[in-house]
Amino acid sequence: MLSFLMPARRGSGLGMALPALVLLLAFFVVPVTLLLTRSVTEPQPGLQNYETLLGSATYLRVFGNTFLVSGTVTLVTALIAFPVAWLLAITTPRLAGILFGIILLSMWTNLLARTYAWMVLLQQTGLINRMLMAVGVIDQPLQLTNNLIGVTIGMVYIMLPFMILPLYGVIRKIDPAILQAAALCGASKGQALRRVLLPLAAPGIASGALMVFVMSLGYFVTPALLGGTSNMMLAELIVQQVQSLVNWGMGAAAAFILLVVTLILYALQLRLFAGRGV
């Protein structure tokens, strides 16, 4: 038992991992494997579920919606998160503490509570529409819920912390001396931003962007509540096939596609950022 007296026994400690291992095998690996096999066995053996999914315009639109919303959400969160993370890295600890408090509060507030707030805020007679009309930007209330605009706003809200936190981690570690050197060598602020700060922050931006994109691809709650039935995303399609249509083969096939895309992007993230500590 004494780590410095005894040579480490091979295999020691594995026993303690056993309970967690058994739990994950029984309630994670087995169920997911069983589900995925149903995609090629129901209603009859073969790949027809995948052919239907990837061959019909209806389902391709679902994939299109999913990638469109996830891409937009990633882009918008990155544009907001970069200046905020930058400010967090260089401002006083007191101000940074307040901003972090707000970020964590919004992150840990119940997901349904936040989504409910946006449903009310964005509806036709909601605060946002009435404020825009009062200011005179629009004459008619905009349709902001039951479409992909609502989904995008709601998801940007949820994903912002997941972009700010990794970006902050990277920018905080940048040595201010490097930017001083850029200034001494005559770089303007714009040049220093474009050619020094942004490239140095790029790993953080890429890692945050991949994470937000992957999380958005499989998101269910916000699209279901803010998107309406005519603008479905992939997770909603899976739930609809399984719950309303009881079409397990199709639901499983859609789940498998989502799983594969997620794992590929995750592997990409590991490969790109392995050992960089982000």
Partner: peptide, 12 residues
């Protein structure tokens, strides 16, 4: 995505 785990566990 938690939706995959949810559907898989539901079936199981």
């Amino acid at each position: 995505p938690v939706v995959i785990i949810a559907v898989a566990l539901y079936a199981f």
